[in-house]
Amino acid sequence: MTRRARLWVLAAGLLAVAALYAAACTQLPGFGGSWHPYGDRAVRAALQQRTANAVSSVNFDLRGFDTLGEESVLFASVLGTVVLLRRTRDEKRVPPEPVRVPAPLRRYGRLMLPVTLLIGLYVIAHGQLSPGGGFQGGVVAATSLHLLYIAVDYPALERFRPLGLYELADGAGEAAYVLLGAAGLIAGSAYLANVLPPGTFNTLSSGGTVPLLNAAVGIEVTSAVVVLLAHFLAQALEIEGEREEGRST
């Protein structure tokens, strides 16, 4: 088929798609209405469970099993990355070059590490009350640790990052979520059912199992991101194959 014929076929196809798409768009419901059948039911169920953040209620209570799947996706992808980025036999580890970092920047990094970590823990702990939760807070907490790399230098990060412990914590967080689900079975209900007392609305202990699952996801995501970045950093800064020469920080 010549190029012109191909382009004519493409034009015909695109025209047909455009016509069908326009016809479908005229049948869409209005944008941003105040009523949605699923939204109404979800919010009512969340309030029944006394969880102020309806999204967290959907994630960890009403559809907790889906979140287990998502967490496992993160866990599996970090596992795959660790395998792919491991140091092979023809690669050797070399110390990274030292880099000069101005003193105000070092002070900022050392000061903001606990502040950012606390903000991350705050977002995890308040997942059932305000926007946030285990995933968001976990990534913020993991980023706080890496302020040591970007605002100080790589050896400072290595001193504060015992990698084995983080790998252990990753597995522990994943296992904690699975085992907390089993608590529902032990209490005579379904797997991942919310069997703890729901507590008072809009307090830290409300929502039953939601804060506990948030904490488990928080631990898992923090450790997973730290382990992931550790392997990227090691490959880019420390590990040299036989064909590479020179490295930097």
């Binding site: 977002v123 939760g133 995933f135 968001q136 990534v139 980023t143 970007i150 990227f232």
Partner: peptide, 26 residues
């Protein structure tokens, strides 16, 4: 949708650029 916004913010501001730039360096 602030929960989704917070997740996007957390991942996209520091972690993703760090991974991309380290990969480019390698």
């Amino acid at each position: 949708a602030p929960d989704v916004g917070l997740a996007q913010l957390a991942v996209g501001s520091a972690v993703t650029p760090l991974m991309i730039l380290l990969t480019v360096r390698k």
